[in-house]
């Protein structure tokens, strides 16, 4: 019960304090909305349709939203040393990390609603397999959040976290099949595509929205939680090494 109270307090504070911080607004909200509008407006003509780009912009909104949130919630507090208060609370590092990432996951999920709402204006979303889409969005949000956590525990400044995040986020936009089909990615780079969790999440969304995913869904359902566990383990190891040295 005590742990649950602490968990909720951290999550609530992060949502109240950081959702509208400038780096979050620019990278986590404005940027994905701009891309969404750009793609959707562009897609209204031939040869691509709004439905074709929707899974990609959904994935991108989650990816940018979650990684930006973590860069802010962890790095801001490390900088001001407020994070020490959390490390001293009797809740354990794993619970603390889960509480900090929960805000990012919810933020990513909420961000994903933007392209869905905008897309619904142009296309009929009744054919979308929501039973697959919603867990897929959740898994993309969780893996992207933990990717953001890995970055956040490795840097000291907010700008470093955003820059370092871009080092991963932008290549992912092109490598993970968001807008370029996996089959069209040069063979040399394709192994890299399959090493990135976003590839599997986006492919699940393509299955759910368009029915044209190329990776069997069961592989993605197994690999995404595996990526999540690996990224979380790496982050906590790194946090223990960097923060309690």
């Amino acid at each position: 019960m005590k742990t649950a109270i602490a968990f909720w307090a951290i999550l609530k504070k992060d949502m109240q304090n950081y959702y509208l911080k400038p780096p979050n607004i620019s990278w986590g909200i404005v940027f994905p909305i701009s891309w969404t509008l750009m793609f959707i407006l562009r897609a209204r003509g031939e040869p691509v349709s709004v439905a074709d780009v929707l899974p990609g912009v959904m994935t991108m909104s989650v990816l940018f939203g979650t990684t930006s949130m973590l860069a802010v919630t962890v790095t801001f507090e490390r900088r001001s040393r407020a994070f020490e208060r959390l490390l001293l609370a009797p809740i354990g590092l794993n619970t603390l990390m889960l509480a900090k990432t929960a805000g990012g996951v919810l933020f990513g999920f909420a961000n994903c609603l933007v392209p869905i709402i905008l897309g619904a204006y142009w296309i009929d979303l009744a054919s979308v397999h929501w039973g697959m889409a919603i867990p897929a969005i959740a898994l993309i949000a969780v893996t992207s959040t933990f990717l953001g956590l890995c970055i956040a525990v490795s840097v000291k400044e907010v700008f470093e976290a955003q820059t370092f995040s871009n080092f991963f986020r932008f290549p992912m936009v092109f490598l993970c099949g968001l807008f370029l089909p996996l089959g069209d990615i040069p063979a040399l780079l394709r192994p890299l595509s399959y090493a990135l969790p976003v590839t599997y999440g986006n492919d699940l969304l393509r299955h759910a929205v368009l029915g044209d995913g190329v990776i069997p869904p069961w592989i993605s359902w197994i690999l995404l939680p595996a990526f999540t566990l690996a990224l979380f383990a790496f982050s906590t190891y790194n946090a223990r090494r960097n923060w309690i040295s």
Binding site: M1, K2, K13, A89
Partner: peptide, 16 residues
């Protein structure tokens, strides 16, 4: 960003 009272309430919540 938090007020004095909110900071203390938050600190208390950390201890459950």
């Amino acid at each position: 960003e938090l007020s004095g009272l909110e900071n203390l309430r938050f600190s208390a919540a950390l201890y459950g």
